[in-house]
Design a protein around this nucleic acid. Structure first.
Length: 107
DNA sequence: AAGGTGACCAAGG
DNA sequence: TCCTTGGCCACCT
């Protein structure tokens, strides 16, 4: 049984699928919306366990400081390209303005 | 099976 | 603004 089949992970994926293109959400925010408040780290695990080519827009999840949290440099590069292609802009310090690009699930 | 690790976070200095 | 600390807890040795 793949880790990505974990019920909690599935709930997390469902939330991430609702983030529209060109917007981003934080790990903590996704955890809250998935009914797992305070479990931001688990969101990171869930995305890490994602199989290649899934329909989950993992690139739209960033940390609460507005920065990319992937450890590997090449992973961050890929995420940055994907987000820029959607219109998300990076400011000084490789930071995304959450006021401008943060997802507000009021839609 | 006990201890380390990490795609986190909020608060302080 | 940048760095450290403590809390967090599932996952992996």
């Amino acid at each position: 049984m793949p880790l990505s089949a974990n019920p909690n992970y599935q709930r997390i994926y469902q939330v991430v699928r609702r983030i529209p293109p060109g917007r981003v959400a934080t790990y903590g925010q996704v955890a809250r919306l998935a009914g797992l408040p305070g479990h931001a780290r688990q969101v990171g695990y869930a995305l890490h366990a994602l199989p290649e080519g899934s329909d989950v827009p993992w690139q739209r999840v960033i940390n609460a400081q507005g920065q990319l949290s992937l450890k590997r440099f090449d992973g961050r590069e890929i995420q940055r390209i994907l987000l820029e292609d959607e219109g998300v802009e990076f400011g000084p310090g490789e930071k995304i303005d959450l006021q401008a690009f943060g997802w507000r699930p009021i839609d």
